[in-house]
């Protein structure tokens, strides 16, 4: 956690230092490249014996200060219950856009805000044991297949060019408007990509490493001498 906070501060400081004394002369809506990356958090959680496992890949394309963003992930949750066992597995995607507020940076580092639409397809299963004076100890398995959910997200964060084609950054997400369909007999405890379903809103975060595949040379803003 300390490492994460330190790297966040370094990224923020680096991005801030880059935006001085330059004028934006790069207004072109032609993309300079495709950035493809992955989220590090799922691997950290797996290393910490979390009941969650999975992966998430992220991609974005720049159109001047606007970015088209696409995320895809797979997630599974397996945990013991007080009276049984619960599993949930599925895939999810998010699509949306970001707006970069760091216009004058020569490397197109980003401080951004954005919006996403998320969707998830999943199946879950609960094996539970109930005790009843008449029927005794009853163990049953309830399955919820073909479940789906959708939600919206407000995003914000940073992207910083670390070295040549390598970028790092983090994204904070406020997820809201959860709408679950199907699975009427087993209400999902967790929706892949969204998280716990106790509330209709949730917070999330990603710490991402990107590789940028350039498609054209990135125009540099002109340095203004004062």
């Amino acid at each position: 956690m300390r490492l994460f906070v330190l790297s966040c501060c370094l990224l923020a400081g680096f991005a801030q230092a880059q935006k001085k004394n330059v004028r934006d002369t790069t207004r072109s809506y032609l993309p300079t490249g495709i950035r493809v990356g992955m989220d590090v958090f799922p691997y950290v959680r797996q290393a910490l014996n979390s009941p969650y496992s999975g992966y998430e890949v992220n991609a974005d394309v720049d159109f001047y200060r606007y970015y088209f963003a696409l995320d895809y992930g797979q997630s599974s949750f397996k945990d013991s219950l007080e009276n049984g066992y619960y599993t949930n597995t599925g895939t999810y995607w998010r699509v949306g856009g970001d707006v970069n507020f760091l216009l004058k940076d020569p490397d197109r580092n980003m401080i951004f805000l954005g919006f996403r639409v998320g969707s998830s397809q999943f199946s879950n299963q609960a094996t539970i044991t109930t005790e009843n004076t008449t029927f005794g100890r009853v163990t049953q398995t309830i399955q919820g297949n073909d479940g789906s959910a959708s939600w919206r997200e407000l995003t914000g964060g940073l992207r910083v060019k670390v070295w040549k084609w390598i970028w790092m950054g983090y994204t904070f997400r406020y997820k809201f408007g959860l709408n679950i369909k199907g699975n009427e007999n087993l209400q999902p405890y967790d929706v892949p990509g969204f998280g716990r379903t106790v509330r209709n809103d949730a917070w999330g975060a990603n710490y991402q490493i990107f590789f940028k595949i350039p498609v054209r040379k990135q125009p540099k803003p002109v340095v203004v001498k004062k």
Binding site: L81, Q187, Y189
Partner: peptide, 16 residues
Amino acid sequence: YRNQVLVLNPDCGAIL
């Protein structure tokens, strides 16, 4: 009747 299972929290268990 229809049986519906709800998991609020693993510590609470599944509620039928």
